[in-house]
Nucleic acid binder design. Structure first.
Lengths: 107, 107
DNA sequence: GGTTCATATGATATGTAATTCATATAAAAG
DNA sequence: CTTTTATATGAATTACATATCATATGAACC
């Protein structure tokens, strides 16, 4: 493996499952089970996604007894999401059919 | 199509070809042919990549006679690349075997 | 108008990462 | 120490974006 950090950076985030997770975590910490329920995803699907997000430093976790609480790594995720929001607003507001809705869950 | 702008944002960038193009364009504008030569990519490969970058507002273009000159859209790309550099530095310096090299072309 | 150079478009095949399913670990509780 | 709850791991299939190849458009020059 060489210096393909940029590719990994984007590839990891280019996924409905992980983005829906990030969207929920942007409102506060959550556990694997909670995410799995709210998104109607298999537990293992959420777990796989969280682990790859964690490996790249997008989320951090803390064990609480049996459960594992995940949250966004604020230093990267907050400015990143703001940057994307601004870009999306500017370039794609017109192309987006759902007015005022910044986010909609994706299968 | 619904509001999947976030997914598109990352999906478009999660690609060696487009990232190598962005890397070159970060040093200045270039044409399809120049990029194709420098990267040893098929012309159509570069063209496809540039068009999808353009559709999402990552690059802008200007026709110059027969050639088409592409450049990065500075408002989004400059802060984005800086943000990623910082994150990659912080979280992955240790995992990267090639010291001091920020970028290496990828097949 | 015909030819050449530069880029774009479209359809199919290919390659890679996510999903799924089965199972393993880990922690608490009885 | 067995059971239950919560999460993680691994292997195989599936799904989807990219690469390729063939062709089309577009601009300049004769």
């Amino acid at each position: 493996m060489i210096c393909n950090s940029y590719k990994s950076f984007f590839k990891i985030l280019a996924d409905d499952c992980k983005l829906n997770i990030i969207n929920i975590l942007s409102k506060g910490p959550s556990t694997v089970g909670e995410l799995s329920q709210r998104l109607h995803y298999e537990q293992s699907r959420v777990s796989h996604a969280l682990i790859s997000l964690k490996e790249f430093g997008f989320v951090i976790n803390k064990r609480n007894g049996k459960t594992q609480e995940y949250q966004l790594e604020p230093k990267i995720m907050i400015p990143l999401l703001r940057l994307i929001d601004e870009h999306v607003d500017k370039y794609h507001r017109s192309k987006c059919t759902c007015k005022g809705v910044r986010w909609r869950e994706m299968k």
